[in-house]
């Protein structure tokens, strides 16, 4: 797949001292971490803790104030915009919490999946359609719905369609913002299952923001816990969840209702 030219002895993505301020308020402050090829990093924390700000800065949707973001050795903060946009439609992908933000609601499912292909120069209708149909199958959407608009899809299907649309160009790095938010638990479970399979099969590196510890436990290899814009704890997922050190993490873990 896409792993062949990714060096395994240097991080895919390195963040150093990233800070984003909203005026006098802190969005996120002094965040540093490495992400290795094939690794899934979870960012957890309560609402307003800076998770989404951090993700937005990492993905280039927002301009960070300080720090460095190195993707395969290249600083994406100082990179010219055309180059960054090429990156974000080829090697990167972004899955929004609300599928309406990530999909074109007026365009058919096939067109949604095909857009990234056409953006990087695919000009053969038959090939585009075939790839789109293949991807719909991989995210468990029936092939006969290829010409339906996302409006006619359920919430779970819309989210799966958004994932197909993002993964069709075989990205290396996927940003996810609460991908299971707003879905009921059984649909969530299937979506997580699907995501886990895709991450493993495609060797994706993922940065996933969530407030749902169960999602973090299932998907993430490592966890970063954020509070008030700062990273307060960082470690292997099981370690952080089973033996939380910071007071806030202990509170977070103990707030989860055990069924």
């Amino acid at each position: 797949m896409t792993m062949h030219d990714v060096s395994l002895d240097q991080p895919l993505f390195r963040v150093e001292g990233l800070t984003k301020r909203y005026g006098k308020r802190i969005g996120c402050a002094d965040v540093s971490f490495d992400l290795w090829p094939g690794e899934v990093l979870g960012i957890v924390g309560e609402s307003g803790s800076g998770k989404s700000t951090l993700l937005g800065c990492l993905a280039g949707h927002m301009q960070a104030d300080e720090g460095k973001i190195l993707y395969r050795g290249r600083n994406t903060l100082t990179m010219p915009e055309p180059e960054r946009r090429v990156l974000s439609r080829t090697e990167w992908a972004f899955v929004h919490q609300n599928p309406r933000d990530g999909l074109r609601m007026g365009v058919s499912a096939g067109g949604n999946v095909g857009e990234r292909l056409m953006a990087i120069g695919a000009r053969n209708y038959g090939d585009i359609r075939e790839t789109a149909a293949d991807w719909l199958g991989r995210v468990e959407i029936a092939g006969e719905r290829i010409d339906d608009r996302p409006r006619q899809f359920s919430g779970g299907m819309q989210q799966r369609l958004q994932i197909a649309r993002n993964l069709v160009t075989s990205p290396r790095l996927v940003f996810m913002d609460e991908p299971t938010g707003g879905l009921d638990v059984s649909v969530q479970a299937r979506l997580l299952d699907l995501l886990r399979g895709l991450v493993r099969d495609m060797g994706l590196s993922v940065i996933i923001v969530t407030h749902d510890l169960a999602v973090a436990r299932l998907l993430a290899d490592r966890l970063m816990v954020m509070k008030d814009g700062h990273v307060i704890e960082h470690g292997l997922t099981d370690q952080v969840l089973d033996d939380p050190q910071a007071a806030y993490t202990q509170l977070l873990v103990s707030s989860v209702l055990q069924v």
Binding site: P82, R85, S108, G114, E115, M118, R129, D147
Partner: peptide
């Protein structure tokens, strides 16, 4: 400015699909 014209082909794609 950035020559991002993939969307134009999405329109033509939709035409053919429909």
């Amino acid at each position: 400015a950035l020559e991002e014209y993939g969307l134009m082909h999405v329109k033509l794609y939709e035409d053919i699909a429909r």
